[in-house]
Structures are given as C-alpha cells and as structure tokens.
Design a protein around this nucleic acid. Structure first.
Lengths: 215, 215
DNA sequence: TACTATTCCCTTACGCCGTAAGAAACGTCA
DNA sequence: TGACGTTTCTTACGGCGTAAGGGAATAGTA
C-alpha cells in the first residue's frame, strides 16, 4: 500500500471540533480521550500535546460553541433591547445546535478573552444608551442566563434511548394532561415559551431604562 | 470491644442524603460509588441494593433537592404572581444550598410523581385565576428555568481551588472593570440580579394575564 | 427453640477511564 | 549527514461503574 502520512496533522482546533462532533453525536459522557483519539486516528496520549487535560478539552468545547455566536455590530443606542433580543435568539439557536454540550456551557462559564470582549462590547453598547456598567451587566446576564435556562429545558441531551416514548404517565394530573393535549412540549410550544420569556424580560427591562429622548 | 452491629442499616434515603452531602462538599465529579460506600462504612456494591445504578443515584439527588422546595398552599387566585414569586425565591435558596448538585438539577429534569404533582398543583392554581393549562405551564416553566439559569451563574461549584482569587484580569475591558468596581459579582449584586429577573418576569406575565375583576 | 426464607453485605473480576513517564519516529535545517 | 525540536506511541498506575455469585445476619414460622 502507499506510504500514508504517519503524522495526523492535528491542531487544537481540529481536536476541539472533532470533540464537539463526538459530544453532539453521543453526549458528553461518551466523550473520552481514547474515543476522541481513535476518532482522529491517534492514540489518546497524543491529544495531550494540544490540551493539558480533559478539563481544558471541555472548556474548549464551551469556548467553541459560545464564540460561534458572533457579536453583531450594535446599532443605534436606543435600540439596545432589539439588539439584545437578536443576540438571545442567536444564542439559543447555537445552544440547541449542540445539545450534548449544553450542560457544559451551563456549568462552565467561559472566561476566555474573546468571551470577555463580547460581554464588554455588549455592556458598552448599553452604556451608550445611558445605562451604568453594573446595571448593563445585570441586564446582559439576566437575558443570557434566562436563555441558558430555557435551552436546558428545551433540549434533550443525546443518549436518551428510552425517553423517546410518549413521556411520563399523566393520569391523575388533569391540568398537565390538558396542557399536553394542547401541545405542551412541542417545538411550537418551546418557541412560544422562549418568545414569552424574552419579550417579557426585554420589554420590562427596556421600560425600566427608557431611551433618553433628544431634547 | 463491644459487638458492634454488623449491618449498616442503610436505606435509599440514607444513601441519597449521604451522597448529597458528599456532592455538596466536594462536587459531583468526586462522587463515586466507592467513595460513597466508604463514607457509609460499606462496600460499593452494597449500594446497588438500594439503587439500580449510578444514574439513579444522580436522579435521586435531584429529586431530593427539588422535593425540599415544598409546595405552599396557594392563596387567593388573583395572587398567583406573588405565589409564584415566593416559590421562585425558595427554589433559589434551595438550589444555592446545594451548589454541587446544581448542574444535575439543570440537566436532569425531575419526572418523579412528586415533581409532577407539584407542577400540577401550581398549574391548577394559575387555572383558578382563569389561565389556560398550556399558558399556565409556560408561565411556570419560564420562571423555573429562569431561576435555574440564574443560579447556575450565581453559584460556583465546589472544587474550584484556583478560582478563589481575584477573578480574571479586566485590563482592557473598561466597562467590565467599572462594573466590577461597582460590585459586580458580590452577593448583593447577585441578589439584585435575581430580583431584577424575577420582578421583570412576573410583572410582565401578570400584565398579560390580568386578574378577572369580580363584577 | 430450631428451621428456613429473605434480606443485606462482601469478594472477585472485567473493561473502561484520565494521565504520568519516557521512548521512538518524523520533519527541518545546518 | 547529523542534530534538534516536534509530534506520536508504549507502557503502566490507580480509580471508575458494575456483572456474578457467595456468605452472613435477620425475620418469620413451627
């Protein structure tokens, strides 16, 4: 056979993207250094040339996912609620695209320089609308954590083999049964719940911090 | 020495409470069947008489924590926002009491009969105020997921040995630095953010579903 | 009281895991 | 060619979840 390349030509990014695929496909708990190695045609220990340990791998996954939600150029200052809303929508979309990694995103805050820069920019945008830094960060964090909480409930992590059935038995819970019959848990319901949270939150927050009228 | 009892006298509940303590003390990732066994003066395999596997142990932990948030007798129907608010406050307090288990609560929805009954009762309470089942559950889920999302950001899981320092370096991020100087991340800030989310959410939700006036 | 059934607990073992230590293969450039 | 730095593999250790089955303490019955 031809002399195939002995070097796999890896990189931190390649390792992370492969890990992300594996985690999305089979869940984080199935993501092991050995499995990831074989996935990349390499022994497990090889990966330790690109990452100091498995915790760094998991942190890298979070970084990869959240950095995919690119910051949008902030428009006019008084439109920050709309801008924040659009960010929330894109964050949700990205999180739901990687349900297996969602628990990681939820429990390991990204402290990368990139992540900090994104938050800084968002806070600065609110600042241009006359909102104090501390309050701006409260607003940003409120929306972000609400989105994450929502997605945790919306997404079912991969690997739920048995849960594919009809859900729990609701006999004896008439209100729940009625809600289920009315479409509880359907994609449309999740969308409606997301819209409900986001609209309520942003409307209320915007009401507390009205745009300064030019006079 | 006296003939000590050879039987440890365990029970599912005792195992779970010991596991909860261990998880709170050292984090979930340090919670292993063997460690839990030694903690209880017993071999690891003994635990399998009370729990089918480790997943059941983790589910039991979630059950234990969320069931500690006892449902309160719902007051007059039109006061459901206040009632829901009080529930959210108690849920947060309980979740923060068990920071190590928080990621579990976030990623493993409790489907126990008890948990379902609590949700059923809450939904029924909103129903008495004239809110349709599906909408009632959207409201309840909105608040619950927001609380969970908030707590994930507020609590730092145990085992963060290095993170006890001053936090990340904020040079180059003036708005973040200003917010940090103004008290970002302090307990008071967390409380303020929680109040902000909860008040905004509940006020808005109540506004969309006004109490029916007696006529 | 003695016998039995049941419950509780332990021993052993297998195949996974993360990763420490160091040897070997490779590409590069003098 | 030879030396060097980078990348990869080999081996090994301790810990993990848990399947299988054995032995001891207890509870029920006579």
């Amino acid at each position: 056979m031809a002399a195939t390349a002995r070097r796999a030509g890896l990189s931190r990014t390649k390792v992370l993207t492969a890990a992300l695929q594996l985690a999305d496909r089979e869940g984080v708990e199935k993501l092991s250094m050995r499995r990831l190695g074989t996935e990349l045609g390499v022994e497990a220990m090889t990966l330790y040339h690109y990452l100091p340990n498995k915790a760094a791998l998991l942190d890298g996954l979070v970084e990869l996912v959240v950095s995919a939600v690119r910051p949008t150029p902030s428009g006019p200052p008084e439109e920050w609620p709309r801008w924040l809303r659009e960010f929330a929508v894109r964050l949700r979309a990205e999180l739901l695209r990687h349900p297996g990694v969602l628990p990681l995103v939820a429990s390991r805050p990204a402290r990368t320089a990139d992540a900090l820069a994104a938050v800084e920019e968002a806070a600065a945008a609110l600042g241009r609308a006359g909102i104090a830094p501390l309050v701006a960060l409260r607003i940003i964090n409120s929306v972000t954590t609400a989105v994450i909480g929502h997605c945790l409930a919306e997404a079912d992590p991969p690997g739920d083999t048995a849960a594919a059935g009809t859900g729990p038995d609701l006999t004896g819970f008439p209100v729940l049964a009625a809600a289920a019959a009315a479409g509880l848990g359907t994609p449309a319901d999740h969308q409606a719940r997301f819209d409900l949270v986001l609209n309520t939150l942003l409307t209320g927050l915007a009401g507390h911090h009205p745009a300064p009228r030019p006079r």
